[in-house]
């Protein structure tokens, strides 16, 4: 590692680094013991998931765990993603270059070909999440890829979009999820205890909204700062 080169430069033995190395070797030994003692049975919840699979409204066990059995977990995670965007926006402004370089013809062709395909595929993944691999996170990630592709090409019309739409899109996932959760409290008395006849539709609705908001979240994280037309401070430069 880089430590070695610095070590060579300074002295032969850096005592602090040696101590760290010793501790890490000790930790490795401990963890190897743990790994050798593991019996590889998983979490032990696999049978329970299989038993209640029919009630979850989806056929894919991972989606069932994510959105139904451990739905509160995913709800909080969507909030965490929103908090990451809030953190980035409060830190700095997005570094838009003063004179953006116009994308060349090849790059424009790539964007025209790839971006619609990515958006289409992301919604396909969300739909597919109910029975095969896929779901809100994967779909959102591909959607985020499409947004990043457009952002990195610095398309000129992209900057003129009002950030109000962006904010609405970012909030759509958490708000829909929270709305469904509260609706469940009203109807069933428990948080995220979906009514049995609506469960498939509700899960698809939540997944679509979450995918849109995750995609926009990733795009905002890539853009690296709050947009130019800040609602709070107006246009300052």
């Amino acid at each position: 590692m880089t430590a070695r080169s610095t070590q060579n430069k300074r002295k032969r033995f850096d005592p602090v680094l040696l101590l760290v190395l010793l501790l890490i070797v000790f930790l490795t030994g401990l963890l190897v013991q743990v790994i050798l003692a593991t019996d590889y049975l998983g979490s032990g919840l696999g049978d329970d998931v299989a038993r209640f699979q029919d009630l979850s409204g989806v056929e894919s066990p991972v989606t069932a765990v994510l959105l139904n059995f451990r739905g509160y977990d995913t709800l909080l995670e969507v909030m965490v993603l929103l908090m990451a965007v809030v953190g980035v926006w409060s830190l700095t402004r997005a570094p838009f270059p003063k004179k953006p370089i116009e994308p060349g013809p090849i790059q424009l062709a790539v964007v025209r070909l790839l971006a619609p395909l990515m958006v289409l595929f992301s919604f396909y993944l969300v739909w597919q999440g109910s029975h095969l691999a896929g779901g809100a996170f994967q779909g959102g990630a591909v959607l985020g890829g499409a947004c990043v592709l457009m952002l990195v090409s610095e398309l000129p019309w992209l900057k003129n979009i009002s950030s109000r739409f962006l904010r609405i899109g970012l909030l759509s996932g958490p708000l829909v999820f929270l709305g469904v959760a509260i609706l469940c409290i009203v109807l069933q008395g428990t948080l995220l205890d979906y009514p049995q006849e609506w469960v498939g539709t509700l899960l698809l609705l939540i997944e679509t909204a979450c995918a849109v908001s995750i995609g926009l979240t990733l795009a905002c994280l890539f853009a690296g700062g709050r947009p130019k037309d800040d609602l709070s401070g107006g246009r300052k430069r």
Binding site: G134, V142, G145
Partner: peptide, 20 residues
């Protein structure tokens, strides 16, 4: 096959960022 499609779609992103 879906994962392969995701690979093929998103592999270009890093290169485009690098080129820019």
């Amino acid at each position: 096959l879906d994962i392969a499609l995701v690979f093929a779609l998103l592999a270009a992103l890093a290169t485009i960022t690098f080129v820019r």
